[in-house]
Amino acid sequence: MRIAAEFGCGPLAERIGLSEFESFDAPHDGLPGKVRLIAGAMSSKPSSSQIDIAAARLRSLAMATPDGELLGSEDDVIGSLGVSRITARQAARLLEREGVLTVKRGKHGGYFAARPSGDMIETVVCSYMNTLGLSTKHTGMVATSLWIEALREAAGAERAAALAMVDELSPLFEDLDPEATLEEVSKLEQRMRAAVFKLIDGAYIDLIFRINAAFARQRLTGWTEQLDADLHRRFVRKWKAAKLMELEGIADGNVLQAVTAAMHERSLWVGRGGGKWKDEPAVERVIAENSLR
């Protein structure tokens, strides 16, 4: 009714004018004069900078609100942002794509805070990396560098926390069955990775590592291919020894040992992913090139 009063028209003309405004590309010729006046006056498209500013404000509101809680109705949000309805809606679409906002329509609708999941980010980024045709050579280098630096930092971490982590993990590796499946090995790898990243407060490193590892799994079939039983036992044995040396280096605060073991351990995974574990000479070559003296 505010617009109707301003333009001296009835509520029906206001509703038609607002409908034309919401679809701002619609032609206004042929509409009744007062409706055309409303639609034309309101149909200026918001600029990118206006939308970006509104999105930044709305993002701040969403991130300051617990996941799943209501920010308010659409009118509430428009009032908080001080923008037009179309600008608010376009800003909301941007945030929905980011995963930080959910918009629900209807009687119990409104704008709700949301949080993007790590799995969602991993999936989206991996898909984008595939469209770029990136090489696993470079993503593997990044993952290896991240793990090495994480172990370097872990070896220098606060002693009580580092020793507690080592005490928790060491028995799991010591008791690992030589016949452990690749799935069991991978789960233990992920458990240690999570513990190390928690020790060094490395949530960002964890995210990048997960993305690169997921991309490598998609592109390198060697990660999941079954090896000959003897070759698999060799892989498990070398991997187990490398992990125990990593943990020992962390426990002793020995950066050189932790980093050297990390380089060796990563080479075993890279070798498997790249198919180097498919034949006996290759296995012996990987062991010889990366054995710890």
Rank of each mutant, 00 (worst) to 15 (best):
238 K>N: 14
261 A>W: 09
180 A>K: 03
228 D>L: 10
230 D>T: 13
194 A>K: 13
220 L>M: 11
258 A>I: 05
254 N>T: 05
182 L>M: 14
249 G>S: 10
266 R>T: 11
187 K>M: 09
167 D>P: 07
218 Q>A: 11
273 G>T: 10
268 L>S: 05
258 A>E: 06
170 S>R: 15
252 D>C: 09
258 A>Q: 09
204 Y>W: 14
248 E>M: 14
216 A>R: 14
250 I>W: 11
224 T>S: 10
228 D>A: 12
180 A>Q: 05
184 E>G: 02
237 R>Y: 02
254 N>W: 08
222 G>F: 06
218 Q>T: 03
194 A>T: 09
173 F>L: 15
193 R>N: 00
263 M>V: 06
271 G>P: 08
233 R>G: 01
179 E>K: 13
170 S>Q: 13
224 T>P: 02
195 A>Q: 13
177 D>A: 11
220 L>H: 06
249 G>M: 07
239 W>E: 04
262 A>M: 05
230 D>L: 08
255 V>D: 02
222 G>T: 02
273 G>S: 04
221 T>Q: 01
218 Q>D: 13
230 D>Q: 11
195 A>I: 03
211 I>H: 10
266 R>S: 15
209 F>H: 11
259 V>S: 11
256 L>D: 09
225 E>C: 00
238 K>W: 08
175 D>S: 15
240 K>E: 03
219 R>N: 14
181 T>N: 03
226 Q>R: 14
261 A>T: 08
223 W>N: 04
238 K>R: 12
168 E>K: 10
173 F>Y: 15
202 G>R: 07
236 V>W: 01
242 A>I: 10
264 H>K: 10
235 F>V: 03
186 S>G: 12
260 T>D: 12
175 D>N: 15
269 W>T: 05
257 Q>V: 07
173 F>W: 15
267 S>V: 00
240 K>F: 00
197 F>K: 01
245 M>G: 04
266 R>W: 09
253 G>L: 12
266 R>D: 13
197 F>G: 01
176 L>V: 03
252 D>R: 15
231 L>W: 07
205 I>G: 00
195 A>E: 15
227 L>A: 02
169 L>D: 11
181 T>G: 12
208 I>W: 00
188 L>E: 01
